[in-house]
């Protein structure tokens, strides 16, 4: 693998993990009795930047290397479903995460005080964070599976 692909793949993974940690941190903060708005603002901004970075670097690797060099190996191997199910699902469901991350960013920056003070808003924001966390976990798991199937 050329160094540019190794770098973009590494940045994709690291940025993605930072984003996953960020979503989890938002979820755990909202689930707690006292949530720090400053923490939520910083974390939501970091999560958004991380997912956007993971998106661009992952997209670069996916378009220029995965399709031509990695996908054929997976499809010809013992676990072709790693691409047919997990990669296909991952590359499309991932598109939801930057949208959700942007919404969290807006929620905390534009009306964070109201969200934390109003239990109804706090609850639905927490539920969205839980769902985003589950999606992020699935995407991470799928990435590990795909990488393993390409060995």
């Amino acid at each position: 693998m050329s160094s540019i692909f190794a770098i973009t793949l590494s940045v994709h993974v690291i940025a993605g993990i930072v984003g996953v940690i960020g979503i989890f941190a938002i979820m755990m903060s909202l689930a707690g009795r006292r949530s720090s708005l400053r923490f939520l603002k910083i974390t939501s901004a970091t999560t958004l930047i991380s997912f956007l970075t993971s998106w661009f670097t992952g997209g670069y690797y996916y378009v220029l290397r995965y399709g031509s060099e990695v996908k054929p190996v997976i499809k010809a191997g013992d676990n072709p479903w790693a691409h047919a199910l997990f990669m296909e699902a991952k590359e499309h469901i991932f598109l939801f995460l930057p949208v959700l991350a942007f919404l969290f960013f807006l929620l905390f920056f534009l009306m964070g005080k109201e969200v934390l003070a109003n239990q109804k808003y706090k609850k639905v924001t927490l539920l969205l964070a839980v769902l985003a966390s589950l999606i992020a976990l699935f995407i991470t798991f799928a990435g590990v599976l795909i990488s393993g199937s390409a060995q």
């Binding site: 047919a84 199910l85 469901i93 939801f96 985003a132 999606i135």
Partner: peptide, 20 residues
């Protein structure tokens, strides 16, 4: 939005599970 994300995610996973 919560339901939209949930159902859209399940639809995508379900579709590709069916295809695979």
């Amino acid at each position: 939005l919560l339901w939209t994300v949930l159902l859209s995610s399940l639809a995508i996973i379900g579709f590709f599970y069916y295809e695979a």
